[in-house]
């Protein structure tokens, strides 16, 4: 469908990808878009490979699952091997530089970013890697506005964690913007 973004967020159970998908979808609603969010996970709450998918569109959305991602996020090795396949040509793929060693051959524009490391070293909590990733993804893709994703994030996170989450999101934006600037410099 024209004006449609298919987003697949993947990683292991417990990395907060479904929450990231919900926040992304809510940010898109604030931006006035239509959204559908789905998820696929096994019975285990931790480990393995799980995915959350978000479709953002100006149009009414019929089929709720992502067929071929325009945007892919992979926060662990297993999920990259399992779910990155099928990305559209020239799709945006973001993987965790520290946790993903092998990136399968792909026509996607792949950015390996220190997402979990940033969360651990600069926020002090690996827990917010999903929020760092969300910031990077927003900056690199522009699918949701910075204001909307910040508002959506702060509505969802527990009281008392706002500052930590806001910081994680900003660090993610910065990672994304730097990567974008680097890629553009590389092309010139």
């Amino acid at each position: 469908m024209p004006g449609t973004w298919e987003v697949r967020l993947s990683g292991s159970g417990g990395q907060g990808l479904i929450l990231a998908g919900i926040i992304l979808a809510e940010a898109a609603i604030i931006d006035g878009q239509n959204v559908v969010q789905t998820q696929s996970y096994g019975p285990a709450a931790r480990g393995g490979a799980s995915k959350a998918e978000v479709i953002i569109s100006q149009e009414e959305i019929d089929y709720p699952k992502v067929d071929r991602p325009d945007i892919f996020l992979g926060l662990n090795q297993e999920s990259v091997l399992k779910y990155m396949d099928g990305c559209k040509d020239n799709a945006l793929a973001i993987v965790d530089a520290g946790l993903v060693n092998h990136i399968p051959p792909s026509k996607a524009r792949v950015y390996a970013l220190p997402i979990t490391e940033t969360a651990r070293k600069q926020v002090g909590r690996e827990l917010v890697a999903n929020v760092v990733a969300l910031g990077a993804l927003s900056a690199l893709s522009g699918i949701v506005s910075r204001e909307s994703v910040t508002t959506a994030l702060l509505r969802r996170v527990p009281k008392g964690t706002e500052d930590m989450n806001r910081k994680a999101l900003e660090l993610g934006f910065n990672l994304g913007e730097q990567a974008l600037a680097g890629a553009q410099a590389g092309h010139n």
Binding site: I22, A25, I29, Q33, N34, V35, V36, Q37, T38, Q39, I61, P64
Partner: peptide
């Protein structure tokens, strides 16, 4: 499961 777990605007 599709409709039960799906989120929509």
């Amino acid at each position: 499961e599709v409709v039960g777990h799906m989120r929509e605007k």
